[in-house]
Design a protein around this nucleic acid. Sequence first.
DNA 1: CTAAATGATACTAAGATAGTATCAATTGAA
DNA 2: TTCAATTGATACTATCTTAGTATCATTTAG
Lengths: 136, 136
Amino acid sequence: MRFITRDTDYALRALLFMARALRHENKKIVTVEDIVAEEKLPRVFLRRILQKLAVKGVLSSYKGKAGGFSFAMVPKKISLADVIIVYQGEIDLTNCFLQGKICPNRTRCKVRKKIKAINAKLIKELGGINIEELSG
Amino acid sequence: MRFITRDTDYALRALLFMARALRHENKKIVTVEDIVAEEKLPRVFLRRILQKLAVKGVLSSYKGKAGGFSFAMVPKKISLADVIIVYQGEIDLTNCFLQGKICPNRTRCKVRKKIKAINAKLIKELGGINIEELSG
DNA sequence: CTAAATGATACTAAGATAGTATCAATTGAA
DNA sequence: TTCAATTGATACTATCTTAGTATCATTTAG
């Protein structure tokens, strides 16, 4: 079961690195090179991953020399759920194979109902964990 | 996010069909054709899916004329977690991309620890839901 | 014997994943 | 002004996974 995709995984590693850099060295702007040097992640791929975080408003980006990425919000406000959603869409364990078409069974499907309840709990749990504490 | 794969989905539909047939008509042995006729699932694919449930001991299979599949255990004893595990392996949200290799960070990784705790809750929830109640 | 059933295996088309390669645009500084 | 360092954007690609189909073998009730 792939719950955390590689995108999300790399993004988390990058964000944790940035949170530590911020806390320990008061380093606000970090480049892709900084992260690659420390975390050994694939350069261009990582760049695209960070770009996405910037588009989604989690990071701010700065072009040109002395450019890089910084947090657009404090790490404490960024939850694990937020990061997962950026790369994997809304957390929804209920997707059945008929998705798109209307399942004739959708409203009375008990499997769906049960999983929906579990899903709500999962979202709550993931929403309660933030980058600040993870980077500690 | 794909939590329930198509294998698992089809298997659940088949099992729910079988549980209803058992309860309503006391029909113990069901053929792939019976299920396909009602649930409109792809024949050969479904056969392989049921074969797997038989190998795993959830169903019993009978070859030859008048053959088919029956429950190898009462539907109440078959949990949602059991079915998921047959097709998707152990429920493990913690898989990081380094899986296989040893993550240098594995023991102290906080992301992992947090997700591991959530995973335990998820397994408990899924283990508490059975085919009998779902088919009701 | 034969039709009806599962068992097993090989094949395939489409999509997702995890990247690489390239060039464009921006910017700080020599 | 020029240049190097940085992100932005897009096109391409190799590999794996998914969701099947096709086919033949084996078993068994009647």
